[in-house]
Amino acid sequence: MGIGSGIALIAIGAIIAFAINVDLGGAVDLTLIGYILMAAGAVVFLISLVLMLRRRSAVSTQRTAVDPASGEQITTRRTTDNGEPLA
């Protein structure tokens, strides 16, 4: 499920809650079902947004060492994005 699924659930829930006026008896309340779908859509949307933002994080590592043979200082820089090296 993604951001689109959350938006779709919110839209379907709003249509059911506000646009449909059908009496199905005392057992089913379409307005309540619409509200439940809108709440579920909001939760799916927020979870998808958080997961997408976490995926975008990058980690940068810098290591410095001294070469014993030449006495030169060597600096290595590495940037990763979710475990995959970047340029």
Score class of each variant (00 low, 15 high):
R54N: 11
T75K: 12
G4I: 03
V59L: 13
Q73E: 12
Q73Y: 08
M38A: 09
A58C: 09
Y35F: 13
L86Q: 15
T64C: 07
Y35M: 07
N21F: 05
V22M: 09
T76H: 07
S5C: 00
I10A: 08
A11L: 12
L49H: 08
Q62S: 14
I10Y: 04
E72S: 11
Y35K: 10
I47Y: 02
D67T: 05
S48Y: 01
A14V: 05
P85Q: 13
T76E: 12
V28P: 03
N82A: 15
M38D: 04
G6Y: 02
M38I: 09
T75P: 03
L32Y: 11
L49N: 08
A11Q: 07
Q62D: 12
I10Q: 00
I20F: 06
N21T: 06
T31A: 06
I47R: 08
Y35N: 08
T61K: 12
V43M: 09
I15S: 05
N82Y: 12
L53W: 09
R55D: 14
L37Y: 00
L86I: 15
I10R: 04
F18T: 03
I12K: 02
G6H: 02
S57R: 14
I20L: 08
E84W: 12
L86K: 15
G2M: 04
M1F: 07
L9K: 00
R55N: 13
A17S: 09
V44L: 05
G4F: 04
A11M: 10
I74D: 07
R54E: 10
G41P: 00
L30A: 05
V28T: 11
P85S: 14
A39I: 08
I7A: 07
G26Q: 13
E84N: 15
A39F: 05
S57H: 09
R56F: 11
A58Y: 05
I20W: 00
T79F: 13
R63M: 10
A19R: 09
G6K: 03
G25V: 06
L86E: 14
L53I: 10
E72L: 12
T64P: 02
S5D: 11
L86Y: 13
V44E: 04
G4K: 04
G6M: 01
A42I: 09
T80S: 14
I74C: 10
I16M: 06
G13A: 01
L9H: 03
V59H: 11
Y35G: 08
M38S: 05
L86T: 15
R78P: 02
I7N: 02
A87S: 15
E72C: 08
S48I: 00
G2N: 11
A42D: 01
M52T: 12
T76L: 14
G26L: 11
G34F: 04
L86G: 15
I16S: 03
L49R: 10
